[in-house]
Amino acid sequence: MNVFRLCGDVSAFSCLCVCLCVCAGISGKSQVAVCLWCSPHGILTCSTGFISIYNTVMKVGCLPGVGIPLQFIYSTCAFRNSYDSGMHFISGGSCCSVAGLSFLEKLTPSTPTGGNTPILWTFSIYLESVTGEAESYHQRHYLFFLGLYRALYLANWVWRYHTESFFDQIAVVSGVVQTIFYCDFFYLYFTRVLRGSGKMSLP
């Protein structure tokens, strides 16, 4: 545990809180994708071995945070907008499968602990890299916290590399990809939202 991971987690929970308060503007399909990644990841981590109380509490806490907004979105037809191109998910999922099978370090479905990255983990990590693109997440603060979460996790990994001499190439590469996807939203957030020049929209 270090301050970067703690701040990253706080940022992620801030993001979930924003989503719980106002889920208008967030695509239902994108939220489904988030659930598809977040739920198996949390459940796998908690069910394959005890890591720490902090880890368990945070991951269990995340599950309603991603599930409840989904319920809100699909119980209210007005929010079920944007991101209608299902092909993105099909192609994205296929790429993730290929990436997950090509670049994994150990050919096992899942593993409790250890340094290797097995199939399901690798798949889920690459899946988030693609679905985390968040092209349809119009909610600015939600995006800001998501981007901050990713950036802080990069700092977390750098910190762990220096303090523990520990490095996981797959996790770091996919983490960098995710953070890059958020860069344009960060740019818009700072140039338009903070300067008060009106509504945020993608270039």
């Binding site: 991971r5 987690d9 945070m58 602990t113 340094g115 520990f166």
Partner: peptide
């Protein structure tokens, strides 16, 4: 052994 990085992720 060190805890894997992907265990950190929420």
């Amino acid at each position: 052994s060190n805890e894997p990085l992907y265990h950190d992720e929420l």
